[in-house]
């Protein structure tokens, strides 16, 4: 039985669709999840979708600009996580809950 010929490269569109799906999942998680930590993780997922797009097109354009942007996005995500977890911790200390709907002393 002859070996099945493998495609030489995954088409670009696949990457784009994958990153769009990841991004949409991140948005959905942000909108529908109740726990603060999960909501925060959804944002990281969105940023990773961005990274995937950058790396894909950096490869396609044969440049390093996109790779560079990826590193900056990672740095930003780390900084946001550092500050974000500190804030979440303070919220938890003052209220003893991490459910988004219960944190409502400022009226909507």
């Amino acid at each position: 039985m002859p070996p099945i010929p493998l495609p030489t490269a995954v088409p670009l569109t696949y990457y784009l669709i994958l990153s769009a799906i990841l991004f949409a999942l991140g948005v959905a998680g942000f909108l529908f999840r109740k726990s603060l930590i999960t909501v925060f993780m959804s944002i990281e997922l969105m940023l990773n979708a961005v990274n995937l797009t950058f790396v894909t097109f950096s490869y396609q354009h044969k440049q390093v600009d996109g790779h560079l942007f990826t590193f900056f996005v990672m740095v930003v995500a780390a900084a946001e996580a550092a500050v974000g977890l500190a804030i979440i911790l303070t919220v938890f200390k003052n209220r003893g809950t991490l459910a988004v709907d219960e944190i409502d002393s400022l009226k909507l």
Partner: peptide, 24 residues
């Protein structure tokens, strides 16, 4: 605290959109 948390979540969310727009 609560204001910071809401601003953080929505701000980071919008940054995600902005970064996605920039990547495109």
């Amino acid at each position: 605290n609560e204001a910071a948390m809401k601003y953080l979540l929505l701000g980071a969310f919008s940054s995600g959109f902005l970064a996605y727009g920039f990547s495109l």
